[in-house]
Design a protein around this nucleic acid. Structure first.
Lengths: 130, 130
DNA sequence: CAGGATCCGGGGGGATACTG
DNA sequence: CAGTATCCCCCCGGATCCTG
């Protein structure tokens, strides 16, 4: 929901379809969260353990945005201690093909990333040293 | 390339395959850039026009990162005025299925995004007003 | 045309403490 | 357990000016 110059504004506010998708899953942790929700629902602290690098604050914020956008459903069980479960909505499930592709790509090429970065880092070093 | 607690560190530094993918295309504009490069190479100012919301600074930065990661190739033509073309590398082309899925989803559901947000905004308003 | 350099403000996001 | 609330720092990213 950003503002663009009127001249280039598409009817839906995006200049290309990919932008709309990024608007939904572009958050730093959203795709990872969705990945963990594909097979079954998860509790809050379960997600924290599954995504060790995320802080509890950020997890909350990202989950709230996903909920706002109708992607995930938040189920509260009235009991002590509290119990909250997060799951994909029907709308959220339409994103599975994307997450699935991301998973496939990551599985296949995660190793190549470090290679590529080491190569470019080495090249840069050479250049700076003359 | 972030640091995680050693206990949860995967061999490749990611806690799940999706994280690796996000590490590459997670930048604010990267997927949109790749989308515009799928069919053919583009010049710098061409991309600026295609992505009106991006500043020239951000476009440069995102392109540099994509180049570093071996996703896009930067071809400089020695001439005045300068001419630079950006295109997908072979490695970059392996991302096409993901971008393609993003495109499909955005095309199908861009409209539903505003609906969902208006609904939750309305619900929120009701709640705050009692 | 394709950027590099610099200045600068706002907010993204971490750490910590508290709560129903 | 599943969050809120608060403080605060850093850096992302916009605006502007300059260059080969």
């Amino acid at each position: 929901m950003k503002k663009y110059p009127a001249a280039c504004e598409a009817p839906d506010g995006y200049s290309c379809p990919v932008e709309a998708t990024i608007d939904i899953i572009g958050g730093k942790w959203k795709s990872v969260i969705l990945y963990h929700l594909i097979n079954d629902k998860k509790r809050f602290n379960e997600l924290r353990r599954l995504i060790p690098a995320v802080t509890q604050r950020m997890l909350t914020l990202q989950l709230r945005e996903l909920e706002r956008d109708g992607i995930v459903c938040r189920t509260i069980y009235k009991q002590v201690p509290p119990k909250v479960e997060y799951s994909l909505t029907e709308f959220g499930k339409t994103l599975i093909p994307i997450i699935s592709q991301m998973m496939n790509w990551g599985t296949s090429y995660a190793g190549k990333i470090k290679e590529a970065r080491q190569r470019s880092a080495a090249a840069e070093k050479l250049e700076s040293q003359g």
